[in-house]
Amino acid sequence: MKRSWSIDRKFWPLLITVSLFVLLYIYGIIQYRGFSSPQVFFNLLVDNAFLMITSIGMTFVILSGGIDLSVGAVIAFTGVLSAWLLNHFGLSPAIVIPLMLLMGVVFGATMGAIIEFFKVQPFIVTLAGMFFARGMSFVISTQAQTISDPFYRTIGLYRIHLWGKSFISANVVIVAIVLIAAIYLAHFTRFGRTVYAIGGNEQSALLMGLPVRRTKILIYTLNGFCSTLAGVVFSIYMLSGHGLYVSGLELDAIASVVIGGTQLTGGVGYVIGTVFGVLIQGLIQTIIMFQGTLSSWWTKIAVGALTLIFIGVQSIIYSSKRKRMASAQRVATATTTAPAAPATAGD
């Protein structure tokens, strides 16, 4: 019953992520001139809006103990397909954008259904989805297509001025809406709790009578939706579409989720952590850019190393937690069996 004022261990990974972000930011401000400009921070949001959205979707998948490798390909495909539809058919964005989102929903639901009904590992199914989406975008066009639609251009070039000279793009507003919706979904709905339950232990979730099948399909559907939304946001940001764009993005998304403190085996983590995971990756990129002499491939190495460190930290935290739980259980069973012992002896 006693409440200690120390922070619950479950918040530790999140706390480490946030403090790492703050420390990196302070390092940047001390080290480089112009880093303290608020625009540096807002650029993190502007440049990583699509990654943020798709990583948020990925968080749900990983929380449930699954994985989705198709997100990068789906984003590229969305870009190519919408550019094609806009340019060649002169379709209105009012049709194209909902169509793209619908496609994401169908794509995600199909993969989820295959994973669930055929009991195939998500890894393989989404790998096939990745091949499919990348291939289809090259089937549509092998060259980069510029989007000249006035609506896309207006939105893409629109600047929301905050204070001083700093601004954000319209995409950041979409991210904010997605983030709020995701936090609500993960922490305040029955769906969210089921996702955590499945990630914790699918068998127990099933035995508890939770709608495991439906929820798992819904998770992939949600992620399909998020990745096409990210695709729309990305095509607004780039104002073009190409099948080669964002190759390897799925790894960035997974890294963001892991750096954000979500456990890869599922069941533990927070949506807000993922946001910081993305921000840290963006920050590393920015610092390397400010540094000037380091090449951009150091970003890859740094992100890889960071992912590793975070997995290490997580496994230390959770293994010590498991040990404590195990010892607590031993004590509990010892106390319950103790009174029973004399009774059997009496017989």
């Binding site: 009904f117 055929f118 990348r134 291939g135």
Partner: peptide, 25 residues
């Protein structure tokens, strides 16, 4: 056939094979 189709075909092949191997089937 344009080489870009290879990936789509691969995707279909993987999926078919995996489904054939799955316990349900």
């Amino acid at each position: 056939v344009p080489p870009e189709v290879v990936q789509v075909v691969k995707a279909v092949v993987v999926l078919t094979v995996v489904l054939l191997y799955s316990d349900v089937v």
